[in-house]
């Protein structure tokens, strides 16, 4: 077994909850790897005695699953109602510019992903953004751009 296969195996078999389903197994792999490789879909299909196409139907149904390896960093800008009215869009545009991107998604060099989030849950601090799940509140377009630049100076996990 390759390293990847071992990690998938361990994640699926390591589920502690009493009810193990296709979905829970996919979530376990996603938590472990940050995405679902083809091997994971095949493994879960065998594990749950179903077919790859059925597992794919479940996996592709949920936008929470990724099918390509995660980027080093993830920047999210909150686009909830509170953030929107105090200028989330301007901050988002600034974040995109700082990251050198034109739209939401993964940057081709896989260093960073920029996404909008429906609510980061810190409405009192609006507008809010998060860098690798660390929140920053009351951002401005300028501070948002600085945050992104600072983030990109850091190495990601082991890169």
């Amino acid at each position: 077994m390759s390293g990847l296969e071992q990690r998938i195996h361990a994640a699926v078999h390591g589920q502690a909850q009493p009810t193990v389903t296709v979905l829970s197994s996919l979530l376990a792999v996603e938590d472990e790897l940050g995405y679902l490789p083809k091997e994971a879909v095949e493994f879960v299909a065998n594990f749950s005695d179903t077919t790859v196409n059925d597992v794919w139907a479940v996996a592709s149904f949920y936008p929470n699953f990724r099918f390509v390896p995660p980027t080093e960093h993830v920047v999210e800008v909150c686009w909830g109602a509170s953030c929107h009215v105090v200028g989330a869009m301007a901050a988002f545009r600034s974040v995109l510019e700082a990251a050198g991107m034109e739209a939401e998604g993964d940057r081709p060099d896989n260093r960073v992903a920029v996404k909008l989030n429906t609510c980061l849950g810190a409405c009192s601090q609006a507008p809010v953004m998060s860098m690798d799940h660390h929140l920053a509140g009351r951002i401005t377009p300028e501070s948002a751009a600085k945050n992104v630049a600072r983030l990109l100076e850091q190495d990601g996990h082991g890169a």
């Binding site: 059925d54 139907a57 592709s60 149904f61």
Partner: peptide, 9 residues
């Protein structure tokens, strides 16, 4: 056979 399935939502 299950060669095809639904995708996305």
């Amino acid at each position: 056979d299950d060669a095809i399935g639904f995708t996305m939502r």
